[in-house]
């Protein structure tokens, strides 16, 4: 009897913890959305009114007019999609080569690629900038995109996932007359969709998000990405919280959309990776 009560109490506690966790994780976003439809004065009203009496949709156009946000959004999309495409192509190719072929120094190649996890842009910032400058890519889309187009984590993710595809599928395709690239295209890609989804989501998020690199390499207004635009607007008008929040909501939408689109694939992709060695 006592044991049962204890168990029930424990269960209730865990449920409480679970729900409490959700609140902690999501509350800031609710507050953001809520604040974005209030007036500049209402945002600090106490007690907090989660839904204001009068919804201030006007914050959105007002905020957007404080910078060339159309351009910034466009640039962010270009960078995010291009980097995502680069990652999907190059990381998957490399992951396939490392997972399913035997060649000399394969392990060395894999280790070299993994070691670049220790060389994030933040560390090689100065010399990467100099390389991009040598290539004449400062203030171009190419310069924004190229250094980010391959990511070691993506290679790792794809290699792990492709390793789980049975060798016999590849061999069957080889006997069926498929070329090596054909095997990649027709057999491997369709069978690692979850991992591709996870990679796409992470690449999109990280590069929709990209701040530091555009901050360094895009100095002209027409190449600024959304995070730069938002930071810049915040720097000028840091008290306009309602409008900053409106922009933040807009900035959240594409990534949220991508997440909802890919979330099943994402969780499965990470799961399938299984981190087996």
């Amino acid at each position: 009897m006592r044991r049962k009560t204890m168990l029930r109490l424990g269960g209730a506690l865990i449920s409480l913890l679970t729900v409490g966790g959700v609140v902690v994780m999501l509350l800031p976003y609710f507050w953001m959305v809520s604040s974005s439809i209030k007036t500049g004065i209402e945002v600090f009203d106490l007690p907090i009114k989660w839904i204001p009496d009068e919804i201030q949709w006007v914050n959105y156009p007002n905020a957007l007019s404080k910078g060339a946000f159309g351009v910034y959004f466009y640039n962010s999309f270009v960078v995010a999609f291009a980097v995502m495409a680069g990652n999907l192509v190059f990381c998957t190719l490399a992951g396939y080569g490392l997972a399913k072929f035997r060649f000399r120094h394969r392990e060395l190649c894999f280790r070299l690629i993994l070691s670049t996890l220790m060389l994030p842009l933040e560390i090689v910032l100065v010399p990467t900038f100099l390389v991009v400058r040598e290539l004449g890519l400062v203030n171009t889309y190419g310069g924004l995109i190229a250094p980010l187009a391959v990511d070691a984590f993506g290679v790792f993710l794809m290699r792990q996932s492709i390793r789980d595809i049975p060798d016999s599928l590849i061999e069957a395709a080889r006997m069926d007359g498929c070329s090596e690239f054909g095997i990649f295209w027709r057999i491997i890609l369709p069978n690692c969709k979850p991992a591709l989804g996870a990679l796409a989501l992470l690449a999109f998020r990280d590069n929709w998000d990209q701040f530091l690199w555009p901050f360094i390499v895009a100095t002209t207004d027409d190449l600024k990405t959304f995070p730069l635009g938002l930071a810049q607007m915040e720097g000028i008008d840091s008290a306009a919280y309602h409008e900053i929040m409106a922009l933040a909501v807009l900035g959240m939408i594409p990534a949220a959309f991508i997440f909802l689109f890919f979330q099943r694939a994402f969780v499965r992709g990470i799961t399938l990776t299984g981190l087996k060695e």
Binding site: P166, S168, L169, E171, A172, R174, M175, D176, G177, N191
Partner: peptide
């Protein structure tokens, strides 16, 4: 000779059917 050009077909132990 490449497997595809050998005019040989194989039935695999795990069948190796393309799942997609």
């Amino acid at each position: 000779v490449h497997p595809r050009d050998r005019d040989i077909a194989m039935v695999f132990q795990n069948y190796a059917l393309y799942p997609h």
